[in-house]
């Protein structure tokens, strides 16, 4: 069976899925097995030729994209709306693809929302400290921007002693069992999604 092509939003997703595929299925994915549409699902529009090409090569297209949140700054945000919008786009453009929406194809959120669920319970204190930091910022008279989820994950990794480039989302080692639990039940929906395409590669 040919390897599928995974369509994602960014380098962080690529690195995580490479590590997950290796651990869960023993499959080594390379950069050529991914199409990065950028930071927004609307980047699908500028990749139609890529999708057609890969499909004609006999490779399944697996789209793994963020749900985001149902707020004004996210177009068609939230699991239900985003899933429907992507499905509509695929139909309008005649693209055959399977879709999985981060964090777990059910809830709102992003890759980083999922990552928080696979951190180690033994280090839950790091997120409690971070929560206090956010409350402090919100309580201030000055209008500070509270950090996003990416910053939270970065702080987790840094607090556990990871150094240099390896802290960054493009180079993190998710197979490091002292930081991440790739056997977490939270990943079951993702693994069930990937299994038909990776189990027999």
């Amino acid at each position: 069976m040919a390897k599928p092509v995974l369509v994602v939003e960014g380098k962080a997703d690529i690195k995580f899925l490479m590590d997950c595929a290796q651990t869960a299925f023993g499959v080594e994915l390379s950069r050529e097995d991914f199409i990065d549409v950028g930071t927004d699902w609307r980047g699908l529009e500028n990749n139609r030729t890529q999708f057609e090409r890969r499909a004609n090569e006999g490779r399944a297209l697996l789209m793994i994209l963020d749900a985001d949140w149902d707020t004004p700054n996210h177009e068609q945000g939230g699991f239900a709306k985003r899933n429907a919008a992507i499905g509509h786009w695929l139909q309008q453009n005649g693209v055959a693809a399977k879709v999985f929406i981060w964090p777990n194809h059910n809830d709102n959120g992003t890759l980083e929302t999922m990552l928080q669920h696979i951190t180690l319970p033994a280090h839950a204190a790091i997120f409690q400290c971070f929560e206090q930091y956010e409350q402090c910022l919100r309580a201030s008279d000055d209008e500070y921007v509270t950090p996003n989820e990416k910053a939270k994950i970065y702080s987790y990794v840094e607090a556990l002693g990871v150094k240099g480039d390896n802290k960054g989302e493009a180079k993190r080692n998710y197979q490091d069992v002292s930081l991440w639990d790739l056997n977490s039940a939270y990943l079951n929906p993702l693994k069930q999604f990937l299994a038909p395409h990776l189990a027999n590669v």
């Binding site: 040919a2 991914f34 549409v37 030729t49 090409r53 090569e57």
Partner: peptide, 29 residues
């Protein structure tokens, strides 16, 4: 130019500027 899944037929895909730019910027081959 790429080969289709039959391993024999060659097909040409034309990228316009916008898709070409997107592919290069995001590291897509």
């Amino acid at each position: 130019l790429t080969e289709l899944k039959d391993g024999k037929t060659v097909k040409a895909y034309t990228y316009g500027w916008s898709e070409f730019l997107t592919a290069i910027e995001h590291g897509n081959e």
